[in-house]
């Protein structure tokens, strides 16, 4: 082969590769960009000082062995919850965390993580509770970024201290047992969505395989409809379109006309559904983070147990 031919071949290869590499910088047309961003969108903005990427993964070492360049690490078990009094992170602790991550009040925060973005969605919920307006999820989470062979970095990043100020907690997007009980008793208006698997919902099992039961009763909150969280995503883990999502929830009577309450086992999977209903569809949604591990154990609280696996009988 002559040099000339080689050069031509080289040029062709470069052009083809370049054609593939040029990212489409637009977000998906069928999802609001203010809530969900694509991997292409994020890849083009990794050096944008107005955009801060936060990873919330729960498998130890996942962030450390390679994360999206520039991303900071929030640890769900200690940074985003208070495990001692079983509560969300306090406003002081969260403000300190966000500032150390270089987050300002007007920063665009993009969260992603392992486990289908569940814990990243919890992070988005906490940001929203403390009044941060612009918080988004990376469509498809960490898995999609990896699948597309996008670069990962092991470098720890430090950003200049941000000025994020936690506002008083937005009580309306968080529900406690009494709020949900009022709906069950008909004293308040609302619709309850159980996002766990049908087997958990019906009370055939207490928890997904491999997880501790943590509740002495199985079943669901009376009147709750069952829409497993995974129905909101496509096979590759990316969100379905707004239209599909609207239809999915409307088919079980969740259309935004009434206040919505979502729950799961400990609140991690229901954060995902909270995000879909609240940030993508714009409905009025509260997450009941006490979830089944509180409700299933609470004294004097009714449950529905179609499978008949009430504690002590079986």
């Amino acid at each position: 082969m002559t040099i000339r031919r080689l050069l031509t071949l080289f040029a062709v290869v470069v052009l083809i590769a370049g054609g593939f590499a040029v990212p489409s910088l637009r977000a998906r047309a069928d999802l609001p960009e203010s809530a969900v961003v694509s991997t292409e969108w994020l890849a083009a903005r990794l050096n944008d000082p107005k955009v801060r990427v936060v990873e919330v993964s729960v498998v130890p070492g996942v962030y450390e062995r390679g994360h999206i360049p520039g991303a900071v690490n929030f640890v769900w078990h200690t940074d985003l919850v208070d495990p001692v009094i079983r509560d969300i992170a306090s406003p002081e602790a969260f403000q300190k965390l966000a500032r150390a991550a270089g987050i300002n009040n007007d920063t665009t925060v993009v969260l992603y993580g392992d486990n289908n973005n569940w814990f990243a969605a919890w992070g988005a919920w906490i940001f929203t509770i403390y009044g941060h307006e612009d918080v988004r999820l990376l469509d498809g989470g960490r898995a999609k970024w990896e699948r597309e062979n996008r670069p990962l970095s092991t470098q720890q990043v430090s950003h200049p201290e941000g000025n994020f100020t936690a506002k008083p907690a937005r009580r309306e997007i968080r529900a406690f047992l009494a709020d949900v009980l009022a709906v069950v008793k008909g004293e308040a208006e609302g619709v309850i969505v159980d996002i766990r698997s049908p087997a958990e919902y019906e009370g055939r099992i207490f928890a997904p395989e491999g997880f501790q039961e943590l509740a002495i009763r199985a079943g669901h909150i009376p009147g709750a409809v069952n829409v497993p969280w995974a129905k909101a995503v496509k096979e590759d883990g990316t969100f379905k379109s707004v239209e599909e999502l609207r239809q999915l929830y409307a088919s079980v009577g969740v259309d935004g006309s009434k206040k919505i309450y979502v729950y799961c086992r400990i609140g991690e999977r229901s954060s995902h559904t909270w995000f879909v209903l609240s940030k993508i569809l714009g409905y009025d949604v509260a997450q009941y983070d006490g979830s089944w591990t509180e409700w299933g154990n609470a004294v004097g609280v009714p449950i529905a147990n179609p499978a008949g696996t009430v504690w002590g009988r079986q």
Binding site: G61, E64, V75, T78, T154, Q156
Partner: peptide, 15 residues
């Protein structure tokens, strides 16, 4: 040093 720049906190390095 890369995984956990500050060892004095409440965490242990992963794994």
């Amino acid at each position: 040093g890369a995984f956990m720049p500050n060892p004095s906190g409440q965490y242990l390095p992963p794994n």
